[in-house]
Design a protein around this nucleic acid. Structure first.
Lengths: 338, 338
DNA sequence: TTGTACGCGTTATCAG
DNA sequence: CTGATAACGCGTACAA
């Protein structure tokens, strides 16, 4: 059917001009006669010509793509879509890329066999890569092969990273619950291998110790189902729990469901605080008090750093976090706001 | 600091071989002596050589990127991250791309000035583009400039599309509520310009007419806040409402919040059904009965079509939808399952 | 204003 | 097994 994609050569021939003129017309039209412009444009339309991006990039010597590489949060990669985090990262990165001629390429790695993939990605990365949820060893490996990289969230020492004050956020969350009069605060933590989860553990423990509260802890892998189960187990063990701090909004959502199923009212009987301020936090019932992570801003900052040529090893940029108070853990009764 | 990225020429020189040999070694190593292989690999490591993707693509004559172009669901592009839809599309597309050497490029268009952008994207698209939430006129314009395109969800007639049986889903949802004994079913619809929203309106209206129920309708723009407001307004107008069908999970989440704020219990007093089966549906309290849209499968199908060279004008692929029954609108009391 | 000629970095072809 | 050399499609000095 189609012989071959038409090249600028074909356009020039049809228009009766030289390649150079055709190129000039197509790119900006400067220094060309109206006559030539019209004929070239006509030829372009007739042939359906579209420049070959590869050739153009090669000739201009510009690289124009930033990779967003994420390791699957969910074991099943098909379920990655349930993670409310990625789209915020994409949004932030794209916001930073607006007005640039740089594009965003998204890559998703299965949790298991990511070693080979990481090598291949490092090899083909041009402008740079943003690492999301990439475990420290893998991040180091990437950095060894390609220095133009920024991790979103703390990772291996050497790898440049944009971080958030996770420990401080967890501390603020627990303190808030304490201020509400809660004294038996359960914590549902994230996966042990995750650096963000680790920081939140630290902040939680600090606050627990500072206030002299008991350490009631469960594990939730950041996932809702696990948050549900962990909370159900905690209730069974310690029926007197009066608050839950979860290290992610999804787990907090699971906690609310588990508490409701167990006959506890939120926030009357038990207060709940989440972490992230993802879309989940505002969608659940009651709306969720949570620690806001400025994901979009962080992703934008990482992107800009890459656009500027990358960062030195060990480079860090730290963002503050905010406690957003909603109905699931509030003082008076500001309840159901829209 | 760095003069210039090393080329394969440099590698060849350092290794003391020709470009051709270096290329052979780097690509697959077939038909090369162990001696040559070792020297080339050493040179590569020493120089930190990484092949130029543009040059490689040009030489191979292969295009290797599919564009995912979405028009902002939210007016504020920074809030795009709150949409639970995109990540499912990304997940589906990437699943179809696994094992391929084709990459996924994500583009986000502001709702307003998208005309110029669409032209630029159509011009630089190579392997093809997946259109998400692109209004019919814009989709047509894109198709005029680049035929390798598939729309996710119905759009202009001519543009190839992967669709879901939206009308059928809405019909099933309303019928389900009717089967539960609900007789005053309110509907919260999506934006008028959106084709999916339109189909769901049709399905809803059909079911309403078939069962002889009153038509109680509000508008929600697919967004949670609007769903909240629309529901609040409907309750005020018709306090006897005993069910809500919302054309998106986000709006259904808003509806649940509004009902709770108004003192109604879900599902005891009012049943609620959403649409999408996004992460929202499982995270809310109570878990939401909803119409499952196989977004991942649809995105994967669209991607495969593009990989296979695209589709003819007016091509259609239609997916079935499923009613997923959870606690927010259920028969007996299967309530809080995890 | 236009055309000629070369370079961008890589891979494939074809002798040796 | 290796090394010249010719594409690949485009942009742009430079010369006309």
């Amino acid at each position: 059917m189609q012989d071959r994609r038409p090249t600028i050569e074909d356009v020039a021939r049809v228009a009766g001009v030289s390649r150079a003129t055709a190129s000039r017309v197509i790119n900006n039209g400067r220094g060309t006669s109206a006559e030539a412009r019209s004929r070239v444009h006509q030829a372009v339309d007739r042939l359906g010509y579209r420049p070959n991006p590869a050739a153009r990039m090669l000739a201009l010597g510009r690289t124009d793509v930033i990779d967003l590489v994420a390791v699957g949060f969910e074991t099943d990669s098909a379920r990655f879509g349930t993670n409310p985090y990625l789209s915020r990262v994409v949004a932030g990165a794209l916001a930073a890329l607006a007005g640039t001629d740089t594009h965003l390429r998204v890559r998703l790695l299965a949790e298991g066999a990511a070693h080979r993939s990481i090598d291949e990605i490092a090899r083909t990365t041009t402008q740079g890569a943003i690492l999301v949820n990439v475990p420290p060893p893998l991040a180091t490996r990437f950095h060894d092969r390609c220095e133009r990289v920024v991790s979103l969230g703390a990772t291996a020492d050497r790898v440049p990273a944009v971080e958030a004050r996770n420990a401080q956020g967890a501390h603020a969350a627990v303190t808030h619950l304490h201020d509400l009069g809660r004294r038996r605060i359960a914590a549902v933590h994230g996966p042990a291998g995750n650096t963000c989860a680790a920081s939140r553990r630290v902040g939680h423990l600090d606050a627990i110790r500072a206030t002299g509260l008991p350490d009631i802890t469960g594990d939730g892998q950041f996932r809702r189902e696990a948050g549900y189960r962990a909370t159900a187990r905690l209730i069974a063990t310690r029926p007197d729990i009066d608050a839950v701090f979860a290290a992610s909004d999804l787990m907090a959502a699971g906690a609310i469901q588990a508490l409701t199923a167990a006959g506890r009212r939120v926030p009357d009987d038990v207060s709940v605080v989440g972490f992230d301020d993802s879309v989940i936090a505002t969608a659940v019932n009651p709306p969720m008090t949570t620690v806001r992570l400025p994901v979009e801003e962080m992703a934008a900052a990482a992107t800009r750093t890459l656009l500027d040529g990358g960062a030195a090893a060990r480079w860090r940029l730290v963002f503050p976090v905010d406690l957003v108070v909603r109905a699931s853990a509030a003082g008076a009764a500001p309840a159901g706001t829209t």
